[in-house]
């Protein structure tokens, strides 16, 4: 390129517009797929609902905790959008407060398991002993069905929200660790890592500064899936009574209560179930879209040979 005849400002302008163009192409590719767009919309909607739950409920004049005995089993109406439950609590308010719990659990589990899993996966590549130790541990964790393991951990730790996050994080670490490890092994063999070793870079510098950014996209995708499965697992735990205790409005817990009143108030079961299903679907679609976007084989990025 003839940079000599261009002044600095002009060059930077071209660079900036190229970068912007690249981003626009990526964004367009993501939005063109209707499914990933739907996923994005659902994810954003759920996050907004969770974030503004107190604002929305107070605007509608409903309360997720207030039991009004005379208002038991009211069918959905303008006053109670999703009806009321066996204690006369507003189900709409409880569902969007439930979104807060689900999103908090999903986000915490996704983030923490991504950080810990990536760390384990990266360090597994540094020595055969560590690799064997960590990966056999992961195998061991994977051998137990996720929900059983989570229930066992909850039984030991005691039922509250923090422990739900802890036990679901433990359950989803092996998946992230495996993905981080296999991608890190690939990057480790690349010439630029060899070149960095030749320059005297230490183990930690190579792992965190040179390998970690290169494996970020599969980790990110795995994170969205961990998010979705944490929502389901939290609901299952709460449904089984091993999760977040009453009267906190967890979707799983609400389903558990609704179990006895399916004929008296079907709406008690319908709405929490619908929200659980839709948000899990949303996160999975979003994750799929993200994967297509970040996957080099899908085009748009240089393919690593």
């Amino acid at each position: 390129m003839q940079t000599g005849i261009m002044d600095k400002g002009e060059l930077q302008k071209i660079r900036r517009s190229l970068t912007r163009e690249q981003r626009r192409v990526s964004a367009r590719k993501f939005l063109r797929s209707r499914l990933s767009l739907a996923g994005l919309v659902i994810v954003l909607l759920m996050l907004l609902l969770a974030l503004f739950a107190p604002v929305i409920t107070s605007a509608l004049g409903v309360d997720p905790y207030k039991a009004t005995v005379k208002d038991r089993f009211l069918a959905p109406s303008l006053q109670h959008l999703f009806g009321t439950d066996n204690l006369g609590r507003d189900i709409f308010a409880r569902v969007i407060y439930g979104a807060r719990i689900s999103m908090t659990v999903g986000f915490s589990v996704g983030l923490v398991s991504a950080v810990i899993g990536t760390t384990l996966g990266l360090y597994a590549t540094t020595s055969r002993f560590l690799d064997n130790l960590l990966m056999r541990l992961c195998d061991g964790l994977k051998a137990i069905p996720n929900i059983l393991l989570a229930i066992a951990l909850m039984a030991v730790l005691g039922a509250n929200m923090r422990n739900v996050i802890v036990s679901l994080t433990i359950v989803s670490i092996p998946g992230v660790a495996r993905i981080a490890r296999s991608n890190a092994l690939l990057i480790r063999e690349s010439t630029y890592v060899e070149a960095m070793r030749c320059l005297g870079a230490g183990k930690h510098r190579i792992l965190w500064r040179h390998i970690a950014p290169n494996i970020l996209s599969p980790i990110l995708v795995q994170m969205t899936f961990a998010f979705a499965s944490a929502i389901i697992s939290e609901a299952s735990l709460s449904f089984l009574g091993a999760g977040i205790p009453q009267p906190e409005p967890s979707w799983g817990g609400m389903l558990n209560e609704a179990r006895s009143y399916l004929f008296k108030g079907w709406w008690m079961a319908l709405f929490p179930a619908l929200f659980t299903g839709i948000s899990v679907l949303g996160f999975n679609l979003f994750g799929d879209g993200l994967r297509d976007l970040l996957d080099p084989a899908a085009g748009g990025r240089a393919v690593i040979k």
Binding site: S190, T191, Y192, E194, A195, M196, H210, P213, N214, A302, K305
Partner: peptide, 11 residues
């Protein structure tokens, strides 16, 4: 190294 194209970290 011989492979100049891949001896720099792409990110």
């Amino acid at each position: 190294f011989q492979d100049a194209l891949s001896s720099l970290n792409p990110v």
